[in-house]
Amino acid sequence: MTLLKVERLTKSFGGVVAASDVSLTVRRGEMVALIGPNGAGKSTVFNMIGGQLQPDSGHVLLDDAPITQATASERFRKGIGRTFQVAQAFLSMTVLENVQMALLSRYGETRGLWSPVRPCHREEALGLLTQVGMEGVADRPSAELAYGDVKRMELAIALAGDPKLILMDEPTAGMAPAERSALMELTDSLARSRHMGVLFTEHDMDVVFGHADRVLVLLRGQIIATGTPDEIRRDPRVREAYLGDTHGLAPLTARPA
C-alpha cells in the first residue's frame, strides 16, 4: 500500500525554481532512491517531505493524511524519522542517551524536572541499539564514535520514533567505502523486517543500484525518470542528465593540441 504520497510539490527561491511539480510515492517496505546531479533540487524536495521547508504549492500525505503544513517535530510524531547528510547527534550525550532522548520525546516525557533520564526507557533503547549492532558501545560518549557508527546511531534514533517512513539524506556520505554497503544492508533489512518505507538520496551509484527497489531521477527540479535500477541504468535521458549536454561541445572535438 502507498505510505507516502507527494503531489505536485513546487518551491522556488527568489525566482529560481528549485522543485517543480514533483510527485512521488513510497510504499511500506520499499527502498526508494532519489538521485540527480548537484543542484537538481534533491535537498529541497527532501526538506519539504521532512518538514524543514514549506512548499509553495502541492501536498504531502502520509497514510493518506495530509501533513503538508506539519512542522518537523509534528512529522516525527506522525511517523517520519530521518537521518542527515552530515550526521546530527547529541554529541554531549552517550550513545544510549541519544536513543533515550528520542524515546522520551516519542512518549511525550521531555518536560520532567525531577526524575533522572538515566533509567528512562533504558531497556527499549538498548533493544534499538542491538538492532543496529551497537549495544556494546551504549555507554560510550557519542562524540567518541567513528563517523560510520554515528550514522548507525542516527538510524537507531530514527527507529526510536517507531517510524513508518525513514528519510535518509545521503546516508553514506563521508563514510569509508567499506562501511557503506554495511549500513545500507542494515537499512534494507530493517525496512523489510519493520515494514517501513525508506526514501534516500545518494551520490554513490553502487549504493543506489545495489539497494533501491525504485529510483527517481531529479533534474532541474523535475522528476525526469522513475523505474527499477535496471530501467534507470538504460534510460537515455538519465545518461544525458549525468553526462551533461554534449551537443554544446560538438565543435570542440577538433580541439587544439
Binding site: G50, G51, Q52, T71, A72, S73, E74, F76, R77, G81, R82, F84, Q88, A89, F90, L91, S92, M93, E97, M101, A102, L104, S105, R106, T110, R111, V117, I157, A158, A160, G161
Partner: peptide
C-alpha cells in the same frame, strides 16, 4: 537533557519531535 539536545543539534532535536 532536552535543552542540551537543542544545544547540541537543533535539526536533530526537531527531527525527534522536541519543541
Amino acid at each position: 537533557y532536552s535543552l542540551r539536545a537543542a544545544r547540541d543539534s537543533e535539526s536533530r532535536a526537531e527531527a525527534i519531535g522536541l519543541r
